[in-house]
């Protein structure tokens, strides 16, 4: 599966369009991590636990998008965009969407 955030896969012609595919995941932080982050909030610096958590979640959302694209018979997803929204206190939705296409 080729992923890109360009309009088409460079060097390859698009054969077929399948429309939009998306993947999302809603994650809440667990209490231990939140506590540690609270401590880190006093001294400042990077919150590695959060970086890791968000990276994992975003990967999961991307995987879901890829599996949807595979179901449609696509071999590439172009014009990928990420977006984050907080749906509730302490929970965030990570959303990734793109256009499933078939390339040569």
């Amino acid at each position: 599966m080729i992923l890109t955030n360009l309009e088409n896969v460079p060097g390859k012609a698009t054969v077929e369009h399948f429309g939009i595919v998306a993947g999302s995941t809603v994650r809440a932080k667990h209490i231990g991590r939140d506590f540690m982050a609270g401590l880190k909030n006093i001294v400042g610096g990077e919150l590695c636990a959060y970086t890791e958590l968000l990276r994992e979640s975003r990967q999961q959302a991307t995987d879901r998008m890829i599996s949807k694209a595979e179901q449609l018979g696509a071999n590439a997803v172009v014009n990928i965009r990420f977006s984050t929204s907080s749906v509730a206190q302490g929970a965030a939705e990570l959303y990734v969407y793109g256009t499933a296409v078939k390339v040569e």
């Binding site: 955030n5 919150l47 959060y50 968000l54 929204s85 907080s86």
Partner: peptide
Amino acid sequence: VRIETSAIGKSAEKRKTIGSIEAIAYGT
């Protein structure tokens, strides 16, 4: 390359302002 920023870590305490921010960069 696109760069997006979102505020996270708004905890249950409402008076707490933005504690931390996440920046994500992506490209091909």
